[in-house]
Amino acid sequence: MQDQRKKLRVIVNCAVFAAITAILAQVEIPLPVVPISGQTLAVGLTATILGSRQGAIAMVGYAALGAIGLPVFAGFKGGAQVLIGPTGGYIFGFILTAFITGFILEKTKFNLTMALVANIVGMIVTLICGTIQLKFVLDMSWNQALAAGVYPFIAVGLIKAFLASWIGITVRNRLVKARFLPAKKETVA
């Protein structure tokens, strides 16, 4: 019975954070090639609160919802064409970002300093994944891809990394205290 409760809690956590990502994706500032959106903030929050495994599962769920056509991506877009299009690399990068960000926190400590380090690393991972796909899909040079897919997002990315760290650690601590999250990493078979 206890195992079933743990599994249910994991499913609910992942579903809630996939939904939060879908909602924050609609907060966007349009730019010519790649918009600035709340998706990356949501990825950082997800990883900071849930950790590597659940964070990555939540992002797989988010990507899957969009892949089947639900309008969960930035600008109320959905469908496989978004994933194979110029911005799809960022979405695939969210899965890796959530895992790496959460992994760093699990191997160090869930505190503001380590969360900021982990979220900055995560931001870099997202930008690398997104820029690689952007370059090849739009047949850009590396300089063009960096100019369109990295440089405009550095300052905003650092702000979002700080917000994800601060809000994420605050929320995580409260969820642990309320026993909605385990204090230590918990494995579910």
Rank of each mutant, 00 (worst) to 15 (best):
L65T: 01
A56E: 01
I23D: 08
A74Q: 11
I29C: 06
V27D: 07
T126A: 15
A64G: 08
T113P: 03
L96C: 06
G38I: 03
G89W: 00
I36E: 09
N13I: 02
A15T: 12
G122T: 10
V117I: 15
T46L: 09
A64N: 05
L112K: 13
C129W: 02
T46G: 13
P30N: 10
L41C: 04
L24Q: 01
R53V: 01
I20N: 03
L116A: 15
S37K: 08
G79D: 08
C129K: 01
G55N: 05
V33M: 14
G93P: 00
A56G: 11
L65M: 14
A19C: 10
A19Q: 02
V72L: 14
G66W: 10
V125E: 04
L45K: 06
K135G: 03
G44R: 06
A58R: 01
A58H: 10
V72E: 03
S37I: 01
V125A: 02
L65G: 08
G38Q: 10
K135T: 12
T113H: 12
V16M: 15
M59K: 10
A67E: 00
E106P: 07
G75F: 03
Q54N: 10
T126V: 15
Q54T: 01
I29M: 04
A115C: 12
T40M: 15
A67Y: 00
A63H: 04
T131Q: 03
F99C: 05
F136L: 13
I124Y: 06
